[in-house]
Design a binder for these strands. Structure first.
Lengths: 289, 289
DNA sequence: GCAATCCTGTAACAAATATTACAGAAGCGC
DNA sequence: GCGCTTCTGTAATATTTGTTACAGGATTGC
């Protein structure tokens, strides 16, 4: 991240003219709000003329007042979106809804108790491009497997989402062996088909990783990695939110492990996309894929 | 001290017109920064015209945009000058993984800003069994649509997940009309196909509900319900966790609204299951389906 | 079905703001 | 002390922004 403008101004104070110093002091005294009004307001607060403010801003390296304000806004937005700032703005109870509170607590508790070594080891395994990944979920968790596969196949090769009719899953066991990794999402009610699939894959030498609830899917018996999540909420349903959070952390971890390959693949995808639809070029700063 | 404008807006949401609601959502999603730019910028973010923003501001009780901005500036200055905010300006080490912290913040922030009335109204609409629900997502959010559909079709009839090749989506527009509700999951990069599908459905009289990110999918222009979620995390990816949390709250809400019908359907499903596989009977205390 | 009312966007206009040109003052070097 | 350079504010201009008028579409009530 770029250093805050405030630090830059403080370091360069001695190179300013007398009136530029007054502008700098006025800004520092009420940072960043003083710079977010008009040139005239800033000038009045500093006791100088409007063109002097513009010269000050130009000396800081901005082509115009608008760019200067853009920088201040960016800093302010980052600050406002930090955790501490947010707690000051609203009551501590997010919405006061017990369901929402429990959802948050589930995610929080899940990561508080998740073995870091297990998470790190699984991340590295999933980042290993010599392996082929197969992601599979049950009736309610297939969306998570699908979500994770959609992301991983962008940052690495050989990612397969085991989809379609459950009766056809066994077809996809053909050729599975020690170079394969099976990632299973399975929460109550555990699905017998998932257990069978995972057991068969393990017999053929594949590594099995399980993302499940606290009561442990039967797949846990043969899995090399088990990541349990809190799913209980005041509702007739179990919540998959914490499993989703685990999936996102794994996705981010694999992307970080394979940073160069990931960026290469994203560029290729972007190039393909621009061939198909050039109007989407240059939309955002993060990987627009 | 005067109550924050944010709370005032949230409480008065139901008295706003459709476009004023969009202005309110846009402001709430990026409060207060969204209101500190120009009328044109605010209008673009909300997907409405500049005069609509001025009408919105007038309805809030401000004689002009300048007074509205003055109010926002005052709140922001108070916040920046509070001890908590000042301590945030110092370097701080977040406890634990910054990614996990941000995931939690996103969910927390999403529900802190989510309008309760909007959420309640959408829950009731989704619970209305005279309606047919169609859930649709993009490349990364299809899993969420799938997840929500898998739950809803257990507690009510007439739930359709719009799946398959995007080229075939238009087929599913046949027969869609005022009795249909389209639930769209769309985050950056917004998919043109989703926009087209939603626009076509709206033209045919369907109600459109959008679950999106803070920057508002273009679907927001024609949606009757908009639920924005925080998606930014310290990763090359956007996070869908907060959208997932919204989906879970809606699922729980619809289940609560249709409690008797839901229990009836769950019993029927359990009976069907026991005909096929009696060994699973009586496994758990919650609806085992 | 029609009239009245409300909502909304477009276009035009008024007002505000950012920027530039220019001239006077101040400072510095010879 | 003078000439040159730099600094600075005023005024003018260009540009941007806020606001209003108006017209078309949607909604509602009779």
């Amino acid at each position: 991240m770029e250093r805050p403008l405030l630090e830059d101004i403080r370091d360069r104070l001695e190179e300013f003219t007398a009136t530029e110093k007054r502008a700098a002091h006025a800004l520092m005294a009420n940072y960043p709000m003083q710079g977010l009004g008009t040139v005239a307001q800033f000038a009045e607060a500093a006791g100088v003329s409007a063109p002097t403010i513009l010269r000050f801003v130009a000396r800081l390296g901005f082509p115009g007042f608008a760019e200067f304000q853009k920088k201040l806004r960016g800093e302010l937005e980052s600050q406002l979106n930090s955790p501490l700032a947010r707690s000051d703005r609203l009551p501590a109870e997010p919405g006061g809804d017990p369901l929402v509170s429990q959802l948050l607590e589930n995610v929080e508790e899940t990561f508080a108790h998740l073995p870091k070594g297990e998470l790190t080891a699984l991340t590295k395994l999933l980042a290993d491009e010599r392996k082929t990944l197969h992601l599979i979920g049950g009736r309610f968790t297939d969306g998570l497997a699908r979500y994770m596969a959609a992301h991983l196949r962008i940052v690495r090769a050989n990612v397969n989402h085991v989809a379609g009719q459950q009766g056809n899953w066994l077809d996809q066991l053909i050729g599975i062996g020690p170079k394969d990794v099976i990632v299973v999402f399975d929460i109550r009610r555990y699905q017998t088909e998932l257990v069978h699939f995972a057991e068969a894959a393990a017999r053929q030498g594949a590594t099995v990783a399980l993302i499940t609830d606290s009561w442990m899917s039967p797949v846990g018996r043969i899995a090399s990695f088990v990541l349990p999540a809190r799913v209980a909420v005041p509702s007739p349903w179990d919540s998959s939110l914490a499993l989703m959070a685990i999936a996102e952390v794994l996705i981010a971890g694999v992307t970080r492990e394979n940073q160069e390959t990931a960026q290469e693949r994203m560029r290729e995808l972007e190039a393909l996309r621009n061939e198909i639809d050039p109007s989407t070029e240059g939309r955002g700063s993060r990987p627009d894929i």
